[in-house]
Computed example of a mutant assay.
Amino acid sequence: MTMQAEPDLAALKLRHPAVFGPPTASRLAKPGIGLAALALLIFGLIDLDFSPQRIWSGLGQLGWFTLLMIPPDPGSSLPTYLKAMGETLSIALLGTTLAALLALPFSFLAARNIVPTQLIRFPVRRFLDTIRGIDVLIWALVWINVVGLGPFAGVLAIAVSDCGAFGKLFSEAIETADRKQVEGVRAAGGNKLHEIRFGLLPQVLPVIAGQVLYFIESNTRSATIIGIVGAGGIGLQLAEQIRVLEWQKVSFLILMILVAVAAIDFISTRLRFAIIGKRAVT
């Protein structure tokens, strides 16, 4: 009987380093990144003058403001506040709808399975990244200077900002769609437009609808914020009452915003489940 030669373990480790363990640099990368993040956190706290003592002393002032807000009372301004809340909901709804309509054609141009050439897809994606990278509050300040104060500036701000976000989300949904339906339309003799209309759209429209419903809920809060800078709605009323120290009216406006957001969340959740259920049945 011949003895089988034992393999040279050192030579095997040298020949297949990935099998016997990651290299030293890879092992040190994770703790190094953790230490760097911790150092950055400490530097940020020091540079921004973070002070637990200031937070503790400010809690008393916060409690005093809370007492001044009780009980919530709109006074004689309830019709004005209801109208302002209607403006805020209209800004969110119209801005989101306009953004979705604008983003849909851009999303097809940014999808890899629709436009394979990088010559068209790359500038479209960078354009969407650019308008998405600017916050809606900045867009509100821009449009206020372009079209003036009021809800119209708020609608344009949300539409432009969300167009970039929708373009990215829609294009990702299009790229992850099942290719079997598209290939079936092609096998039946359909052209490129038929593939998009009958192969892709039935798959991605429920996803797009769910995303639009979520953004309507989110943009209700955004419409409140941009109203503070002059884009109309309940945010403008909130800023005015804070400025004149009418804390009971401030608390009433905050409660109105919370109730509106909760109602929109309830409705949008029901609609999303209905869309998902209908898609599952079909």
Score class of each variant (00 low, 15 high):
Ile144Val: 14
Leu213Lys: 08
Phe106Leu: 15
Lys13Met: 14
Glu240Ala: 14
Met69Gln: 13
Arg270Asn: 11
Ala36Ser: 08
Phe106Lys: 00
Thr224Lys: 00
Lys83Arg: 13
Ala36Lys: 03
Ala25Thr: 05
Leu28Asn: 02
Gly58Tyr: 04
His194Cys: 04
Thr130His: 02
Ala100His: 07
Arg270Ile: 11
Ile42Phe: 07
Val19His: 02
Leu48Val: 04
Val250Arg: 06
Ala153Leu: 06
Leu137Ser: 03
Gly227Thr: 06
Ile225Tyr: 06
Thr176Asn: 14
Pro202Lys: 06
Arg270His: 12
Leu62Val: 13
Asp49Gly: 09
Thr220Ser: 07
Leu137Ala: 02
Ala177Trp: 07
Arg243Tyr: 12
Ser77Tyr: 09
Gln4Arg: 10
Val136Ile: 10
Ser161Trp: 15
Phe215Pro: 00
Trp143Tyr: 12
Val185Asp: 02
Asp8Gly: 09
Ala223Arg: 04
Asp49His: 13
Trp247Ile: 11
Ala173Trp: 00
Ala5Leu: 11
Phe122Asn: 05
Pro206Ser: 06
Glu172Lys: 06
Gln241Lys: 15
Gly190Arg: 05
Ile234Cys: 03
Pro31His: 02
Val182Arg: 11
Gly21Asp: 12
Ala5Gln: 12
Ala92Arg: 08
Ile33Asp: 00
Phe43Lys: 01
Leu149Gln: 04
Leu258Lys: 08
Ile138Cys: 11
Ser26Arg: 13
Pro116Asn: 04
Ile242Glu: 12
Ile276Tyr: 14
Glu87Thr: 15
Ser51Val: 11
His194Glu: 15
Val115Ala: 11
Val146Cys: 05
Arg125Ser: 07
Gly277Tyr: 04
Thr24Ile: 14
Leu45Ala: 13
Ile225Gln: 05
Val261Lys: 04
Leu255Ile: 13
Ile264Thr: 10
Ile91Leu: 13
Asp8Asn: 14
Thr224His: 00
Arg125Ile: 08
Leu41Ser: 13
Leu238Pro: 03
Gly232Ala: 11
Phe266Asp: 04
Leu169Glu: 12
Gly233Leu: 02
Asp265Thr: 09
Ala231His: 01
Leu238Gln: 02
Asp178Tyr: 00
Gly148Arg: 01
Ile158Glu: 04
Pro72His: 09
Asn145Tyr: 07
Gly210Thr: 10
Thr66Tyr: 09
Val115Pro: 05
Leu149Asn: 05
Asp162Gly: 00
Pro22Cys: 01
Lys249Tyr: 04
Thr224Tyr: 00
Glu183Pro: 05
Ile257Tyr: 09
Ala274Val: 02
Leu41Asn: 08
Leu48Lys: 08
Thr24Ala: 14
Trp247Phe: 15
Gln4Phe: 05
Ile267Asn: 05
